[in-house]
Simulated assay, not measured.
Amino acid sequence: MKRFRICFTALCFFLMYFVSFSQTRKQLERKRSNLKKEIKQVNSLLIETKKKKNNALDDLKDLTHKISIRERLIKTITLETTILSKEIQNNQKEIQKNNDELTKLKLDYQKMVVKTYKSKSLQSKTMFLLSSKNFYQAYKRVKYMQQYNDFRKKQGNDILLKTKIIEQLNDSLLNRKKAKDRLITEEKTQNKAVEKDKKNQEKLVSSIKKQERRYKSQLLKKQKEEKRIAARIDRLIRDAIAKANKAKGAKKSSKFTLNAAEKALKASFEQNKGNLPWPVPGIITRKYGVQPHPTFPGININSTGLHIAAKGNADAKSIFNGKVMSIQSHTDGKKSVYVRHGNYISVYNSLEKIYVKKGDPIKTGDKLGKIFTDKITGKTKLSFILYKNTTRLNPQEWIQ
């Protein structure tokens, strides 16, 4: 019984040990799967988008983004392969250990069988019992024979259990070796793809350097326009706060004066931080905040929100319950929708068609407008900004 418990405990330990390994590996598998999906999105939304005119600067940014994702994928595959190698090594050690234990169990069992055979040839069980001096001794001898038989049965069970463990270990080892081979093949494929992308990247960099002055001029002009739009948005929000507070008879403030319902909405919005839905499915092509330009040293990009590339004809959707605070039109023909959630405001820029009007109550996921698709580049991108009163927030910290 004791030996059986030891074998059973060993099996449980083995399973727990490899479960902990497999949990880490499953996390890496999920990450690998997500990165591969992200590469597909970059290809479909950015790289393979039909264009009437190429822009080397945009192409370089998209290709660099794709390379960075693929490099993260390669690192994930390498880490997953390393864990598999450790699992295989530990698996092999466990097989050797169990084989040694099985050999010893079989040897012990063999010795007992021989001993039983010899004892049977010397005297039968009946004679063994009849030769007892008294009833108590006969009882003890019966108990002894029962324990002896039980022990033999336990030895047989131990051998079966140990054999089962070895079979499971061998199956596990085979599966892990196959998985490792698949990962090695995938890593080679991804490395080749990165090499190809980097060659294209070098060509684009060379092309941009030849016309650096023109591209820098375009970039600075675009940044100036973005600053002007950002200033208009800030001013509109300040005016909206002042107007809302005045209507309630509140004092002048840079923050919304909230009633009970608005306070409840604010609290609910805050409770959902990190779990709010995306305003549109896609990939983030520009993050929030100040960041160095990937091509031109010394030039920084100040992003007021997130730039999300989406499929053509995609709609921007509200990230939470609220009310349409304002609709704004820009000189380039694009429009913006402002949705207020208590003292939070979500702004959906770069829309070409609006589905709502000022004052409309909004539910999470409601369609607000169709996102503008650039006729030259063929790309569809939403600029998404988030405010708390007049303070800009990083939207990436709030969405899922």
Rank of each mutant, 00 (worst) to 15 (best):
residue 1 M to P: 11
residue 12 C to K: 04
residue 13 F to P: 09
residue 14 F to G: 13
residue 20 S to I: 12
residue 20 S to L: 15
residue 23 Q to V: 09
residue 30 R to S: 12
residue 33 S to T: 05
residue 35 L to I: 01
residue 35 L to Q: 09
residue 41 Q to P: 06
residue 44 S to W: 08
residue 47 I to M: 12
residue 47 I to F: 12
residue 48 E to K: 08
residue 48 E to C: 04
residue 49 T to A: 15
residue 50 K to Y: 11
residue 53 K to D: 01
residue 57 L to E: 08
residue 61 K to S: 10
residue 63 L to P: 04
residue 64 T to D: 10
residue 70 R to K: 12
residue 70 R to E: 09
residue 71 E to S: 11
residue 74 I to Y: 06
residue 78 T to Y: 10
residue 80 E to K: 15
residue 81 T to K: 12
residue 89 Q to L: 15
residue 90 N to I: 08
residue 93 K to E: 10
residue 104 K to L: 10
residue 107 L to R: 14
residue 108 D to I: 06
residue 111 K to G: 02
residue 112 M to T: 03
residue 113 V to C: 12
residue 114 V to R: 10
residue 118 K to Q: 09
residue 125 K to Q: 07
residue 126 T to H: 01
residue 136 Y to V: 02
residue 137 Q to I: 11
residue 139 Y to C: 00
residue 144 Y to A: 15
residue 161 L to E: 04
residue 163 T to A: 11
residue 163 T to R: 10
residue 164 K to H: 07
residue 166 I to W: 05
residue 168 Q to A: 15
residue 171 D to I: 07
residue 177 K to P: 01
residue 179 A to K: 13
residue 179 A to E: 11
residue 189 T to R: 07
residue 193 A to P: 00
residue 194 V to E: 04
residue 197 D to S: 15
residue 198 K to G: 11
residue 200 N to E: 14
residue 201 Q to T: 06
residue 203 K to P: 09
residue 209 K to A: 14
residue 209 K to E: 08
residue 212 E to M: 01
residue 212 E to A: 11
residue 217 S to Q: 13
residue 230 A to L: 07
residue 232 R to H: 13
residue 243 K to H: 09
residue 249 G to K: 03
residue 249 G to H: 01
residue 250 A to H: 05
residue 250 A to D: 05
residue 252 K to L: 09
residue 252 K to S: 10
residue 254 S to H: 13
residue 256 F to T: 06
residue 257 T to I: 08
residue 259 N to F: 02
residue 259 N to R: 07
residue 268 S to D: 13
residue 269 F to P: 02
residue 272 N to P: 03
residue 273 K to Q: 10
residue 275 N to I: 01
residue 276 L to I: 03
residue 277 P to F: 00
residue 278 W to S: 10
residue 285 T to G: 11
residue 286 R to N: 15
residue 287 K to Q: 09
residue 287 K to A: 09
residue 291 Q to N: 08
residue 293 H to Y: 04
residue 293 H to F: 05
residue 299 I to S: 01
residue 309 A to L: 04
residue 312 G to L: 01
residue 315 D to T: 07
residue 318 S to F: 05
residue 320 F to M: 00
residue 321 N to F: 09
residue 325 M to Y: 14
residue 327 I to C: 02
residue 344 Y to P: 00
residue 350 S to N: 15
residue 354 I to E: 06
residue 363 K to R: 04
residue 367 K to V: 02
residue 373 T to E: 13
residue 380 T to R: 06
residue 383 S to F: 12
residue 383 S to H: 15
residue 385 I to V: 13
residue 385 I to Q: 06
residue 396 Q to M: 08
residue 400 Q to R: 09
